[in-house]
Design a protein around this nucleic acid. Structure first.
Lengths: 223, 223
DNA sequence: TAGATTGTTAATCGATTAACAATC
DNA sequence: TAGATTGTTAATCGATTAACAATC
């Protein structure tokens, strides 16, 4: 019998929706809205109220009958579930355009992730100032990881370098890899990997466009 | 009764998997592998053979009993379904780091999408050379769209500018918007929108890390 | 109290997997 | 022909929606 010490049976589908709830709730918090019903939130997010109640119910009644949900509490709780309040440290490998975009945006800070340093192997980038950081040589990676113990490594290097760096990272005890290289990487049980396939997303869009065109071959007539 | 002119009932789940098939098949094509069975492909992609046969079956028998699938044909066919062979034109709005990363990579070209121009409203970026392009002022957008009739607009502008530019684009007859702003946009029936929420993907990763930690609070003992 | 709204159960719907006859 | 492997049907599994009693 497998271990049953925890009762975490929250379905994958629910988890996948939490970040979106989190975004909408953040928006509501920033507008000083104190409470919201499943019906109102459903309308806002374009989903069913039933789904919202079902989803939030998984984590045990935050709601209050006849009242709805306390926006701030709910925001905080979902953040806790997602690990937003853990102050994870991150390092970024690859200081090209994509790396710079990630480093200078609010994506990390806005989610409780603390970027510690940026690395590159390219001589022309090492020493460059990017946001509040100075790009470090990749040869410093090991020493810096020992010092910072980052939970997250962000891979914004060329596809060809992906596998090798991923292998290095496995030895450096990072807990998760956010992989933008386009090369799908895997890294054992211990390490979580989020493979971002931007190309796949573009293909989704192309499909939608293409499918629409197929259904309405010319734009004036439906028959 | 709704229109039944086509019989396209291919489930959303299947469509969502096609880009990944496409990537793996491209790899096989480039390795000059001529045929593959559902079983072999399943092993490679870490899915079930049954799912592969079910998925590919939707589009009507490419396979051949006792042989498998012809890699090149399958690659071509999936590309056709996804619209990879339509030579869609695209424009990119926002020439910051993210915009430059997208423009200088192989993401468009590798998927049959032809980038035509890059726009920005920032004086310091206008005129800058990015890859083979010169950044154009946003004021040229309308004229260029009239000329190029791009199917796709890529939004790599700050979040605050998202809504306004999306509204402009609706009037310019683009068929799809690839939205990196972080602001969820919607744009009527006519226009397909792919909202890329990089932050949500980071949150997924944080969740995975967090969930793993909860299940194994310390790394030496399982009980 | 009366009205509103949740939490939760049951029903429906869709997606995945298993199995095997058809067939190359 | 015999072996391999698909295409497809049926069974299972999971996710969504509907409904309503519980309760604030």
């Amino acid at each position: 019998m497998p271990n049953k010490t925890t009762t975490p049976k929250v379905s994958r589908a629910v988890i996948a929706r939490l970040p979106r709830y989190y975004r909408y709730l953040r928006e509501l918090v920033s507008k000083d809205i104190l409470r919201i019903s499943s019906g109102e939130l459903a309308k806002l997010m374009n989903v069913t109220a039933s789904q919202i109640r079902q989803d939030l119910g998984c984590f045990g009644g935050f709601g209050q009958q006849g009242y709805g949900y306390n926006v701030k509490d709910l925001y905080k709780t979902i953040g806790d579930i997602l690990g937003m309040n853990e102050s994870y440290s991150a390092i970024l490998i690859g200081a090209g355009h994509l790396g710079q975009a990630l480093a200078t945006g609010t994506i990390f800070g806005g989610r409780g992730v603390h970027l510690r340093g940026i690395f590159d192997s390219d001589e022309s980038l090492i020493g460059k100032e990017v946001g509040e950081f100075t790009v470090l040589p990749l040869s410093d990676l090991e020493a810096c990881c020992a010092k910072w113990e980052p939970a997250i490594a962000v891979l914004a290097v060329p596809r060809t370098a992906a596998k090798e760096i991923a292998a290095t990272l496995s030895t450096l005890k990072v807990k998760g890899i956010w992989n933008f290289t386009g090369e799908e990487i895997t890294a054992g049980e211990e390490i979580a990997v989020e493979n971002v396939q931007l190309g796949d997303l573009l293909m989704n869009l192309c499909y939608e466009i293409h499918a629409k065109e197929q259904n309405e071959p010319n734009e004036t007539n439906e028959n």
